[in-house]
């Protein structure tokens, strides 16, 4: 029982608690955001944002902030990645908005644009990380860790940052939950009732960028988005109303993270992949159950 040893052994506790605190914080804000990502069909936008993070990581390493251990260096690294994610969020957010559609830049073109942002950011990140190696600023963690996350790379800095982001995201969502829900459910009608739809879209994109940057360390660039989609996607398979869906979303997100962290410690497998596969399994069970119950 590796997990038990990590929990009880004073020497190992410091390796266990940061990822657990970070993971549970990610579960809270990822779960809350996933409700709106699923309802608003923004999963692909999330993909674009998370892949833009890879470009931001490349810039951070070239600037020598990649492996910075000091709080200032850490904040600088996260700041650069956040700016990259935010720019990507603004771009894909605009391209998928009603305004872009009216201007003739919507529809399938927006999908294409998100796809371009996604691969261009990955390419830029790859290029810059190679450049960082030449400059003697090679990543202190493996590329696999950057892409798919690594539990050993999670520090107390990450844990506190995750907790702070969880407070910000949950606070913002709770404060505007009613107009946000109306917007996510029926944007066109919500605008007709005076809901500030553009401001809400902007707010959600900023929160998504913030969440992606924060979740990246535990789940990796590729899998961070999964935390923003899978909890609600799985909950929808079981719930009959929005309140039930919200409760199940948070439960599944926490269960997914706990299971992922425990599996990671027990079997020495990547944390991000474990979390995603746990949530995907819950989704698969719910999907099968829903199909069978319909006959």
């Amino acid at each position: 029982m590796n997990t038990w040893n990590y929990l009880t052994d004073p020497a190992l506790r410091s390796l266990f608690w940061p990822p657990l605190v970070a993971g549970l914080s990610i579960a809270l804000f990822g779960g809350a955001l996933s409700i709106f990502v699923v309802l608003k069909r923004m999963a692909f936008i999330g993909q674009g944002i998370s892949h833009a993070a890879f470009g931001g990581i490349g810039v951070a390493y070239v600037l020598g902030l990649g492996g910075a251990a000091s709080p200032a260096g850490y904040a600088g690294q996260l700041g650069i990645v956040f700016v990259f994610c935010l720019l990507a969020a603004m771009q894909v957010g605009f391209l998928t908005s009603d305004r872009a559609t009216r201007a003739g830049r919507g529809g399938t073109q927006s999908d294409t644009a998100i796809g371009i942002v996604l691969v261009a950011s990955m390419a830029l990140g790859s290029l810059l990380l190679h450049q960082a190696e030449r400059l003697g600023r090679a990543p202190t963690v493996s590329w696999e860790s950057l892409l798919f996350g690594s539990i050993v790379s999670v520090t107390w800095n990450d844990a506190w940052a995750s907790l702070l982001v969880a407070c910000v995201v949950l606070g913002a969502i709770i404060a505007v939950r009613r107009p946000l829900m109306f917007w996510a459910f029926d944007e066109h009608a919500a605008a007709g009732f005076g809901v500030p739809v553009q401001r809400l879209r902007l707010m959600l994109l900023i929160l998504l960028a913030l969440a992606t940057v924060t979740a990246m360390r535990l789940a990796g660039v590729v899998l961070a988005t999964a935390m923003l989609v899978l909890p609600a996607a799985a909950a929808v398979q079981f719930a009959r109303d929005a309140r039930g869906a919200a409760v199940l979303t948070m439960v599944f997100a926490v269960v997914g993270v706990l299971a992922g962290v425990v599996l990671s410690f027990e079997f020495d497998v990547p944390t991000g992949a474990s979390i995603v596969l746990t949530l995907a399994t819950i989704f698969g069970v719910g999907w099968t159950r829903a199909r069978l119950s319909r006959g």
Partner: peptide, 14 residues
């Protein structure tokens, strides 16, 4: 306002 259609993800249990 009653719009022509609902643009929502109707599979979400609302």
């Amino acid at each position: 306002y009653v719009p022509q259609r609902v643009e929502a993800e109707l599979s979400f249990p609302i």
